[in-house]
Design a protein around this nucleic acid. Structure first.
Lengths: 352, 352
DNA sequence: CCACAAAATGATAGCGCTATCATTTATATA
DNA sequence: TATATAAATGATAGCGCTATCATTTTGTGG
């Protein structure tokens, strides 16, 4: 903050226009616009003069004027269907942030009211009729192929968030569940656990396969044999975790650690341990997946895999813009899978 | 959808302008604008003609143009600090919806990075400098009086969401915790419960007082005596619910129902019951408050009080706009407390 | 110094709509 | 019928900015 700034009557965000900056810097409107938009073709001396005027006047561009004049504002649809609130929050934060930065509109579309199973074509048509330029589809609808095909057939570009087929060549944003599950398994092995139980998600759910695949790969890497009695299947609910935990912890030789395919089931397993008078993590360590709100609500807090949801949704917006703009460089730059994070908390400990 | 619509080449949302509607309806731009904005001074016959043209062409106003021309777009700051994700989601959905409908900008401000306890004036100054027209403050910051006073002193109108002092004459949006708690207590009594335990929130938290006040009032209305041993204090965490549940359920005469001041503690009480080999709700009914995600994640699902958060945040935006516009009628219309909803689920049952 | 090309800068119409003032039409009254 | 008033409609400048074309400045080579 320069001293001269305190003598300027700053009324509101919209009072300082590009005209005033131009006058103060002694250049034209267009030169200010070029500086603001990093357009090049501006001499460094001139640029510095303009930058100073911008700072002195606390100039902020008027987004509405930019959009109207530039005619470049896109309308991006974000489709969701019964997400967990924690997941939707992060999706919203990331996508809103990316839209704001790029001067685009984000329109939320809750498919819960639309019974998408019945009429994919009708949904696609109404999205098109709403004037959307492209669509981001979040789980679980990111795996609903009839709907996706209908939207693409309607001529709308689509970016999918965490589709089950992460190897698709179509635009998608995802992290690697297999690698993340291997990482968690390795974490348990590094803590000395050898006898490790695993609770799968529902077999009709491909992400459940990916997580199990990572568990299997990690066991193989550590030359640990899979034992059928230690591998059960749940349905991603707390109740199914309760049931699985009761079975695993009642074995003659119970596991010293249990890795559940999501946090809800992990929380149910913790509750089962407590029902059986066991202490977590002293008697059994429990790990989850997803880092939902539940993971830190219960006691002890869960060790789990955190998905970078905010960053994924931000990237989904940027990828969709690149697709719409036919910006192949950016599309290619975003092919990679995103990093996850292992959140080590109180539900896992080393074997003494 | 009329038949004639299918013969129109609809390119995108921005292709149909007010000019095209005017031509089709045989009126001026301003007449279309008046119809679109419900401005009055338009004959019914003319209005119908314009409406038909709007529908035929699927005209949608260009928000950027409206904001730029109208010069009425406000920048509304939404301040939050470590909210639960479920809470923030609903706040976002409601406030975004209200902002979109009114053509205003919503700017999110996460106070978590700003250590608001240290510099309320600095926070207020930066909000003002960002060009905001007004601010919505969500819990827990809606009770941070130094910050609120600093923001008001900086000349920014403030609307608080769920402040602890719901009787304040300053603009706020809230529901009645006392009445809601009375309602839940009555629900338990109507189910035949007489011996009812209560777990308070932390005594330095005014909403905890309100909920206890409602419990007390409901007990008095039903001529039920308060028994000290049945009333404990937790700190709104799952762990404190575990502890309180263990104590209450180990009494010589345990309660037949326990009402916890929030869902986290209620979930901990359910876990304690399970640890003690008790069945919920057969052996003890458990009720919570807030209807957080946790309430339906655990098993059995909690009977609880649901706050109308989406509607509250929508109203907060509209109230703030009314304050900024000095629209006293609307400000007065929004003085009332908002309705809650009792969500009756599996954790409470009648005494046989 | 001159000619030419490239870089830098400037002027302005227009983006879609609305606030405001001007004009036209309809209605009421004498 | 004439006049005044109210209701309804229309014309247009301008909101803040950018795409585009025009003009000026600078740098290079002969």
């Amino acid at each position: 903050m320069t001293e001269s700034r305190h003598t300027v009557n700053i009324k509101s965000r919209h009072s300082v226009t590009i005209k005033e900056v131009a006058e103060r810097a002694g250049v034209s409107l267009m030169t200010v616009s070029r500086v603001v938009n990093d357009k090049g073709l501006v001499k460094e001396v001139t640029r510095e003069k303009v930058q100073k005027a911008i700072e002195d006047l606390n100039y902020r561009p008027n987004i509405s004027a930019r959009r109207l004049a530039g005619g470049q504002a896109l309308f991006i649809g974000l489709l969701y269907h019964n997400p967990s609130p924690g997941y939707l929050t992060k999706i919203l934060l990331g996508s809103l942030s990316a839209c704001r930065r790029n001067g685009h509109h984000l329109l939320l579309e809750d498919l819960g009211e639309k019974t998408p199973d019945s009429e994919p074509k009708e949904v696609a048509r109404s999205l098109k009729a709403a004037g959307l330029d492209g669509v981001i589809i979040t789980p679980p609808m990111s795996n609903h192929m009839p709907l996706i095909k209908a939207i693409e057939a309607a001529g709308l570009p689509v970016v999918r968030v965490s589709p089950d087929n992460i190897h698709t060549t179509k635009p998608r944003v995802a992290m690697d569940d297999v690698l993340a599950a291997r990482h968690m398994l390795q974490h348990l092995v590094d803590k000395g656990h050898i006898r490790i139980g695993f609770v799968k998600g529902p077999s009709d759910h491909p992400s459940a396969h990916h997580r199990f695949e990572g568990f299997e790969a990690g066991m193989a890497e550590n030359n640990l044999a899979l034992e059928d009695a230690l591998i059960l299947e749940g349905d991603f609910t707390y109740r199914s975790g309760l049931d699985a935990g009761r079975i695993l912890l009642s074995l003659d030789q119970p596991p010293t650690a249990i890795f559940a395919s999501n946090d809800d089931m992990a929380a149910g397993i913790v509750a089962s341990a407590h029902m059986l008078g066991l202490n977590v993590p002293d008697d059994v360590s429990v790990a989850g997946f997803d880092d939902t709100e539940l993971a830190t609500n219960i006691w002890p807090e869960l060790t789990t895999i955190q998905q970078p949801i905010v960053e994924m949704s931000r990237r989904a917006v940027e990828l969709l813009i690149a697709v719409i703009r036919n910006d192949k460089d950016t599309v290619n730059a975003y092919r990679g899978l995103m990093d996850f994070k292992l959140m080590s908390r109180d539900s896992v400990q080393s074997i003494d």
